[in-house]
Design a protein around this nucleic acid. Structure first.
Lengths: 229, 229
DNA sequence: CAGTGGTCTAGACCACAAG
DNA sequence: TTGTGGTCTAGACCACTGA
């Protein structure tokens, strides 16, 4: 078989692993050997193997060679929930209500995450997102005021999310998921009972110097985060 | 500035986006132009830009050119929970108990996921994982018996997980996460109260022909799934 | 030390899609 | 039509690391 293109080579390698021609933990031929077999340049084989290594299918080390990973598929890509898009992807109408917009001292758990950015007061925005008018998620956002321009944007007019997307490029951060019981506020807003199991997303965005914003998103019951492997 | 190596070029491009030299939605120079500026081959620039496109930072189209993505970082990679490794990474001792090992007809929700693989009886394995002897997660696994070799492995001796890892290579599937209330069984086994919020992982593994196995993992309270962006 | 992957090069042709 | 990214090549040198 003579695959054409690096994707064909990648698929052929996957096939040989799938049919146990090459088994987990075993070493596969060198790039040079594969290039000879497939009748292509070594660079093309390299491209294919790099792709499989990034996907976690292969493990590569100089001199040691390339091996089939022992634990296949140890990682997955997830689309990060972007609420509006998520709702609209379901064919529903996305709306939102700003429930609160204040300057507040950082609550202890928020301060712990945001570090010295949380020493003074933070901008706090509480938002309820609705899908077809029904509660979909409750968002609590704390924003480091130091990153705002001098005449601060009027977040009653411009969505905080949209302002951040437009004005903060390429920030890094953490994201975490957990199951929690709904507290009184979330229960009230989402129309569920206190203590009901809730899927929670917490996301911290960091700038070059200090934390920019921390978001806590409580999804309505029944929410599932899903992806293919 | 003259970066060296494709990673340096990637970082320089990220930097220019971060400092808003190139803003979201705007077009950046062509590969040829960047190669000239950086004094390297076009292939090196290509390597860097491909990496950023895969990361979601750039959007590339032939003839249209390369643009800074409007919604930066919409995806993240997650390590898929591999229980034993997860426990040991905490510096705890991982053990497990097989609570049940049977052949059963597929429960309705399981049959819905596994399709025609679930028409007959399935192998059912219920396992409790412990970290330092304390309940860590409760696993319910349904296994398509058609994939087992004729003298079926003795799963009382060999862990189902280990057998699957060693004998099923490169399968595809789905994985999903949700928050649920603990049912009676899970509550009893994990030592918590019924209805307590539980982080649940569901994973379906498909072979070439039919579903191989479906796993439902209920994590003990306090479990968080976290990653960097 | 020597073998393997990691990377770079200079050039080439092609596929796609915007104008 | 034509500019842009996508890919391939044949060769080269280097970095790492196992033996």
């Amino acid at each position: 078989m003579i695959p054409q293109g690096w994707e064909a080579i990648r698929d052929e390698v996957k096939r040989r692993i799938h049919v146990r021609d090459w088994t987990p933990g075993s070493i596969i031929p060198t790039e040079a050997d594969l290039a000879a077999e497939f009748g292509c340049a070594r660079g093309t084989v390299n491209r294919a193997l790099i792709d499989l290594a990034q996907a976690g299918v292969l493990e590569r080390r100089r001199k040691a060679g390339t091996r089939v990973a022992l634990l296949p598929v140890r990682q997955a890509r997830f689309a990060i929930p972007v609420i509006r898009a998520e709702i609209e992807a379901r064919g529903q109408v996305a709306t939102h209500q700003v429930l609160a917009l204040d300057r507040v001292p950082a609550p202890v758990p928020v301060a712990a995450r945001m570090g010295r950015a949380a020493e003074g007061q933070l901008v706090y925005v509480e938002t309820l997102y609705l899908a077809d008018g029904r509660p979909f998620a409750h968002e609590s956002r704390w924003l480091n005021p130091a990153i705002l321009p001098d005449p601060a944007p009027d977040f009653a007019q411009v969505s905080v999310n949209e302002w951040l997307v437009a004005n903060v490029a390429l920030a890094t951060g953490d994201i975490a998921f957990a199951a929690e019981g709904a507290d009184a506020r979330v229960a009230q807003v989402l129309g569920i009972s206190v203590g009901a199991p809730i899927f929670v997303t917490e996301r911290l965005t960091r700038g070059a110097e200090a934390a920019i914003t921390f978001v806590r998103l409580a999804h309505a019951p029944g929410y599932r985060m899903q992806t293919e492997l």
